[in-house]
Design a protein around this nucleic acid. Structure first.
Lengths: 74, 74
DNA sequence: TCCTAATGTTAAGTTAACATAACATTAGGT
DNA sequence: ACCTAATGTTATGTTAACTTAACATTAGGA
């Protein structure tokens, strides 16, 4: 992140939701109009997506953005 | 946006929620740990924030991310 | 065991999302 | 009209969020 806020991170449950829906990374990527690498990176926590992508993912994974991405203290 | 998807945009109601709560751009910026310019840019639709910022803004403006940022067709 | 689907890794490039800063404009109160 | 707070504008720079692409690894079924 650009904003340096030590002591906080964004944890997501994309992988959990995705596998629960028996969806593949590739399938999800296609549905949210992103690449597989992007999904992998997000699942691995390599980066946090934009709200645009987050809204799409949440939509496809049938849940709210806040239950998919949690802003937590370390 | 990086993702080219003609026919769609992200519309937000940050300004409405903010003014409703009688909060200033500067005040909001400070609370979400961003700059005033960032708030202005978001309100003007110049760019969509990251989920991190979106989560913070939604939290401060006391609403859900999806009611603050709507993915709409043009 | 072999084949394939799914997942992971790395690199290199582009654009968007931030920041800082300095200055201009508007709106409202006295 | 004046002052100040709030808002808007423009420019420049850095980093994160993406992309494409090529290859490596893992897991599971026939």
């Amino acid at each position: 992140m650009y904003i340096k806020d030590k002591g906080h991170t964004v944890i997501n449950s994309v992988r959990e939701k995705r596998t629960y829906l028996k969806m593949t990374q590739d399938g999800l990527a296609e549905k949210v109009q992103a690449t597989r690498q992007t999904i992998i990176a997000i699942e691995k926590g390599n980066y946090v997506p934009s709200v645009l992508l987050a809204l799409r993912i949440a939509s496809i994974l049938e849940c709210k953005v806040e239950e998919l991405f949690r802003y937590e203290k370390i």
